[in-house]
Design a binder for these strands. Sequence first.
DNA 1: GAAGAGCGTACCGCTGAGTGGAACGCCGAC
DNA 2: GTCGGCGTTCCACTCAGCGGTACGCTCTTC
Lengths: 249, 249
Amino acid sequence: MEDRNTVLGKALAILRAFGPADSVLPLAELVRRTDLPKGTVHRVAGDLVHHRLLDKTAHGYQLSGGLFELGLRAATERTLLELAMPFLQDLYERTHETVHLGVREGHEVVYIAKIGGHRQAKAPSRTGGRMPMHCTAIGKVLLAHAGEDEQTAVLTGPLERRTPHTVIAPGLLRRQLSKAVETGVAYEREESTPGLLCVAAPVLKPDGHTVVAAISVTGPVGRFRPESHETAVRAAATALGSTLARRGR
Amino acid sequence: MEDRNTVLGKALAILRAFGPADSVLPLAELVRRTDLPKGTVHRVAGDLVHHRLLDKTAHGYQLSGGLFELGLRAATERTLLELAMPFLQDLYERTHETVHLGVREGHEVVYIAKIGGHRQAKAPSRTGGRMPMHCTAIGKVLLAHAGEDEQTAVLTGPLERRTPHTVIAPGLLRRQLSKAVETGVAYEREESTPGLLCVAAPVLKPDGHTVVAAISVTGPVGRFRPESHETAVRAAATALGSTLARRGR
DNA sequence: GAAGAGCGTACCGCTGAGTGGAACGCCGAC
DNA sequence: GTCGGCGTTCCACTCAGCGGTACGCTCTTC
C-alpha cells in the first residue's frame, strides 16, 4: 500500500505522518515516523510546501490550508455534509447535545460532521476522524446494515476493549446488531469512552437496505437519557434519507 | 507555481482540476483540463487511486474520502473549527439564519464552516470554498483588519463586479473598511449575490489588532434585517476571540 | 568554554522511476 | 460501415529523484 519508492508514496507517507493530534512536526520527527532518509524528507517536504499542502513554520511543518480546501472538494462527503446540515441542526436544537454524522470507511467509522454546544460531552470523536465500529453507536448501526460478509469480517476480527463496558463478545454484538435492524436504532453505553452514552439511527437509501450514513446524539452519563432521543434521531435520519433520494444522489 | 515536470506537480494539477462543482471527471476531461499527455494522466491518476486520494468510478474519477480525512487534519483550520462550533451554534440558534466562519487566504476568503437550517438563503458560499474579499461581509471585515499593504493590494487590484450592487470603487470601499474597524462589524447588501444580505464581525487576537477569522450571519432580502443581528454577531466573534486566546492558540 | 548531540540545510554523481508517443480495442453516433 | 472519442497498454529513453555525505547552527552537558 505505502510505496516507499515512488515520489507520491513518499509524499503521502509524510502527509499521513501527521496524526489527528499533531499540529506541527519538525523535520527530524517526520524522518523518524516515515523512516525515509533525511535528505529525501527535506526535499519532498519542501516540494509539498511549494504546492501548499504543507506550511513551514519556525518549529517545523504543518498541514496547510490548501489541503483543507482540497479535502472539502471531495464530492460524496461534501454533498452529504451539505444536505445533512439542516437536519443535524434541527437535531441539535431539539437535544442540545453533541450530534454526529458518520459513514463507514473500511472497517471503521469516519465522522463527516460533529456539532455541539458549550456544554458538550468531551468525546474523542473529531470531524474527519476515525473510530472503531464495534464500540460506537454509529458504527453499530452502519455495521448492522452492512453486507453479511462485511459484518462477519468485523466480528471475527480483533475487537479492541476500549473501556470495561466495551462489548467484545461477537455473539452479543451480533444480537445487538440484529436488534438495531429491528428497532432502527443502536445504542452505546460507555463502550468507547467512560461517561458517554449515544444513540444512532441509519440513513438508508429508499430501498430500505443500503446504508449511506448514520446520525447520532451523544451525551454524558447522568443528565443524558439516550432513549428519550431515540425518535428524534430516527426522524432526522429518515428525513435525511428521503432528501438524499430526492436530490440526485 | 504549477510544475509540470515533477510527479507531485502533475498529481496536484490533476487533483486541482476538480472544481468546487465537479463530482466525477472522466479521464479525457482531466487530460483536457491539465493538458498533460493522456498516458501520463492515466498513470498518475491510477497512482492517486492507489493512495486513496481519488476514487475510480464507472464514469470517471472523483476526489476520495481519503482526501477528506487528510484535509481535516490541517491543524489550524481544524482547531479553529472545533473551538468555534459552540459559538456558531449559539449564533444560529439565536438567528436561525446561515452562519459562516471564514479566514483570509491570499486575497480571498476561505470558509471554514457554514451552518444553516432548512430555510437558509441559497448562498454560493461553501465550506472549504472561496469568495472574493471586496464583496462579502466576512471579506470586508478581514480586509479591514489586515495589514495596510494587504489592504491596498486588494483595493488597487481588479475588483470584480458580481452584481449591480457590488462596490468596486476603491474609495468607497476603503471608507466602508474604516467604518468596519470603528463599529466592529461590516455589511454586505447584495454585493456578491442578488437577494442576500450579511453582517460580519472579526475574531481578534487579544492585542485587538490581528484578525484570526470572521463570523457572519446571512439572510435573504425581505425578512432579514442584518442590523438587528449586529450585536449577536459581534458577541459571538469576541467570545470566540477570548476563547482562542485562553486555549493555547 | 570545550565537547557533544541533534537539528536543518546544501551538495552532487548515479540510476531507475517516470515519461509520453504510439498503437490497440471498444463503444456509440452518424 | 465508418468514424471520432475514449480508456487502456506497451516500451525504450532520460532526466527527476535519490540519498549518502558533509557542513553549520543551537542547545545541553560536564
